[in-house]
Amino acid sequence: MLREFVKLGHYKFAKEAADWEEAVRMSCEALESDGTVEANYKEDIIRCIKKYGPYIIIMPNVAMPHSQECARGVHKTAIGFMRLNNPVSFSPGEEDKEAKLFFTLASCNSEQHLQNMTKLSELLMNEGAVEALMLAETPEDLLKIQEDYLD
């Protein structure tokens, strides 16, 4: 999975984001750059979070920004990865609602999306890989994590 992020250019490393909204926008940039999603997709995600709360926080320090399947402006099924040096809070004062790692989902093919979710689940169940991702700074780091923990 990490190898695929590097191959497709679906990754971003950043120091910080001003707030969770900026972080969500930043997490969509790599998917926008190759036409996987259109610019409206990030705003759709932000609207959903404002409406339903921080449902995208799936475990401490890990967010999975997404909107509904077959959302408007989604042209390919993919996952984008972003790591921030400094976490953003989705609910001030609640440490368990902070995120440094973002796995942004785009889906227009349910079978491929299910395969992506399975790979992502396997990745997130590997504590060593998640800890290494928290420190990753380059695409080479992603490839090394893939080799060390997932192959």
Rank of each mutant, 00 (worst) to 15 (best):
2 L>Y: 02
12 K>R: 15
12 K>D: 10
13 F>C: 05
19 D>Y: 11
19 D>W: 10
25 R>Q: 07
26 M>R: 09
28 C>A: 14
30 A>H: 09
34 D>R: 14
36 T>W: 02
37 V>T: 06
37 V>W: 02
39 A>G: 01
39 A>M: 03
41 Y>F: 08
46 I>R: 08
52 Y>K: 01
53 G>I: 04
56 I>K: 00
57 I>Q: 04
58 I>E: 05
60 P>R: 12
60 P>E: 11
60 P>H: 10
62 V>W: 03
62 V>T: 11
63 A>Y: 02
64 M>P: 01
69 E>H: 11
72 R>F: 09
72 R>S: 12
72 R>D: 11
73 G>W: 09
75 H>M: 06
76 K>H: 13
80 G>E: 01
83 R>M: 01
85 N>T: 10
85 N>A: 06
86 N>H: 14
90 F>I: 08
91 S>R: 14
101 L>K: 00
102 F>W: 02
106 A>C: 05
106 A>W: 03
107 S>M: 06
108 C>W: 11
111 E>H: 14
112 Q>E: 12
112 Q>M: 10
114 L>K: 15
115 Q>P: 00
117 M>E: 07
118 T>D: 15
120 L>F: 06
122 E>R: 15
124 L>E: 15
128 G>A: 14
129 A>L: 11
130 V>K: 13
132 A>D: 13
135 L>R: 15
140 E>Q: 13
141 D>I: 00
142 L>Q: 05
143 L>Y: 09
145 I>L: 08
147 E>P: 04
148 D>I: 02
149 Y>M: 04
150 L>S: 07
